[in-house]
Design a binder for these strands. Structure first.
Lengths: 389, 389
DNA sequence: ATTCTTTGTCAACCCTATGGACAAAGCCCA
DNA sequence: TGGGCTTTGTCCATAGGGTTGACAAAGAAT
């Protein structure tokens, strides 16, 4: 029904907010910078920039830090960001442990606490979340900008966790709960997605406009950054590639179907395959090491799982024409032969020109990616900021 | 390099343009409507709306059309769109023929001309394009808003046709050429994509935010409408699913790989398969008819090709979580058993909850979809309009 | 006929970006 | 050392454009 809702009108305040965002971003991205330079960059007048910078200074977000070199005229007054002027509380609700951390405006971790899950779930897990946040907030901190959470499972756009298997959570309105309890803006997302924006924003200067970050661990999921923004799809389920069937006659998956990608390429599946092949490797690391030494059976297992991921990536490339693909998560510990298998299969299965320009890179185990992504989401939504470097 | 470019500043003029767009859209979508009603809908004041409507009237885009019923006070003055106030020239550069048409603001075709291609290509084909546009413009018309073109092949974001096989065009800057020659804003897109926005915009009131329109004909391509906008990908190649490998050991494709979707599910491939199965059907229609009468061999061929499309759709669903999928193009003539095979396979290969809510519908041969889509693109870019119904 | 509503418009006002002017501060060069 | 030239940052007047409030016109309700 386009009949009832309608896009929102534009107001002066919005213009202001937009331009304020530009100035903040300039200060943020381009380090110590003069007002005049910001004016040139943004196209705003020096007058406007001066006023907006003044506002940032009053809010404590920016401060003058001396003069720069002259270029033939008056030396510019440099303004830079007060990195610690605000803090963000972030949570990584991992498979085995929950981590809470306090991050500054640069995404630097000020402090963190991790608590092992030890089979805790349901309400107890929620209580653990509260404890962790309480603990983080108990220490000294700057004004809090918001709370960002990365969690496994499917998460609605409004921050409700539809279901998270290992935590026995279903339809848990986590964002609303935390918002009510702490009074801060709160964003809850799926961990694959958090990792995706983190990779995107911290990807350095040459970051592309589109990026897909695929997490391969106990489960498999991707976060899609399209045209610079996280894409959720109609039901916020975009990127749930773990349950696309890749082997119609494959093993049964816990989702009820047969031959889902997760039955072939997830960590548990790989270990099962290794065992079936008569290998005695207990962990992904071990298997990777075995493959690295040239063990044929290990190599075969590693390659098979890599090819499955590669085939899925070929689909991604064909459908979305993305150039930047990052693979991360615990399974990346399989090492180079795994990645090579992914690249080979992705190339073999997708259109030449597209595949040639695609970079598939190893994002590693991605320790703090979820925390960073959750932080980035808060920064973006609260300040219109874009974290990078 | 985020260092050099920078998002653009917001100005008063932009605010104005945005709000003008809102008002125009209200008049456009909601037929005869009063200024007061527009004000309520958009959140703008009656004053602003009055002024903006005045502007539309001066431009000839809107006109007063009497009074509406009173609701207890002064009866409202109704304003409605002057459908024929502007015209759009559109071109459909089809596989066998070129069509040019003049469309009004509602996407209604005012007049059209079609010329068979008869093997014409290269410069001669370009000349044909010029002739067609000249012919359309020779007749009476309202002020022209722009030219919209739908063409096969891969098209850059700036309207350069990278290559179109059957026309022997490569790196032809068609948009620039037409812009220079006629002086109108010009948009050139791939036909699958044009069809996608057309389906999206003309899809009625309950249109979703995401839609994928898959064209299955001589080639196979999809147009992706994500969050209400056409998605192009990094190299404007998004939706080129025809060359994703679906059968690694399949037949050779003209792209050089083996087992691309097009080698299995495109019109020529299907006819080849039918011939190989000993069928004497000459056309897609014939084959569809044979399948409809229960011919086992025909049915097998039809189902096999449908399943291949269905598997690709499962990928789309898993990756993008789109709810609305439209299949169109000449191969839809295969009929119900083909569509059923598509649906079955798509459901079988994708996650339950996702597949359940997905609607895969038959868009038919899609006669004028390309023309409509090209028109819609021009309307959207020139007026910020959204065509529907 | 009177009162109450709704509509459309006009005038005064406010927010915010712009353009011009100017002092401050630096370089360059005689 | 002083004059000319640039660049920077700010002040002031101006203008675009949405908002508020008031009001006449027009219709419904009593």
């Amino acid at each position: 029904m386009a009949r009832t809702e309608f896009p929102t009108k534009a107001t002066h305040a919005q213009t202001r907010a937009h331009n304020a965002g530009l100035v903040l971003r300039a200060v943020y991205d381009l380090g110590p910078i003069s007002r005049a330079e910001i004016a040139r960059l943004t196209g705003l007048t020096r007058t406007s920039v001066g006023e907006l910078v003044g506002e940032l200074e009053r809010e404590g977000l920016a401060k003058e830090v001396g003069r720069g070199p002259s270029t033939g005229g008056k030396a510019p007054t440099l303004v830079s960001l007060a990195d610690g002027a605000r803090h963000v509380v972030t949570l990584d609700l991992g498979e085995r442990a929950f981590t809470a951390a306090l991050l500054d405006l640069r995404g630097e971790i000020v402090r963190r606490t991790t608590r092992d899950l030890d089979g805790v779930d349901g309400d107890a897990a929620l209580t653990l979340v509260h404890h962790l946040v309480d603990e983080i907030l108990a220490g000294p901190h700057a004004p809090i900008l918001g709370i960002g959470v990365g969690t496994p499972g499917i998460v609605d756009a409004d921050g409700t966790i539809r279901w998270a298997v290992n935590l026995s959570w279903s339809d848990l309105p986590l964002a609303a709960l935390l918002r009510d309890r702490y009074g801060y803006p709160t964003i809850v997302t799926n961990d694959s997605r958090a990792a995706a924006i983190a990779t995107f924003l911290f990807g350095g200067d040459d970051r592309p406009t589109n990026l897909v970050a695929i997490k391969v661990g106990r489960g498999i999921g991707a976060g899609l950054v399209l045209d610079g923004e996280l894409f959720g799809g109609d039901g916020n389920g975009a990127g749930e590639i773990g349950h696309i069937v890749v082997e119609p006659d494959g093993a049964e998956c816990h989702c009820g179907r047969f031959g889902c990608l997760e039955t072939v390429a997830s960590a548990p599946a790989i270990l099962r395959a290794a065992a079936a092949a008569g290998l005695t490797t207990e962990t992904i690391q071990d298997l990777g090491a075995a493959a690295a030494t040239g063990d044929d059976r290990a190599l075969a297992v590693v390659r098979a799982s890599g090819r499955a991921v590669g085939a899925s990536i070929a689909n991604l490339i064909g459908i979305l024409d993305v150039r930047a693909i990052v693979v991360h998560g615990s399974v990346t510990a399989l090492g180079e032969s795994w990645l090579a298998a992914i690249r080979d299969e992705a190339t073999r299965r997708s259109l030449g020109p597209l595949a040639r320009e695609t970079r598939i890179v190893d994002g590693g185990v991605g320790e703090d990616l979820t925390l960073l992504g959750a932080c980035a989401l808060v920064l973006t939504s609260e300040l219109g900021l874009t974290v990078h470097r």
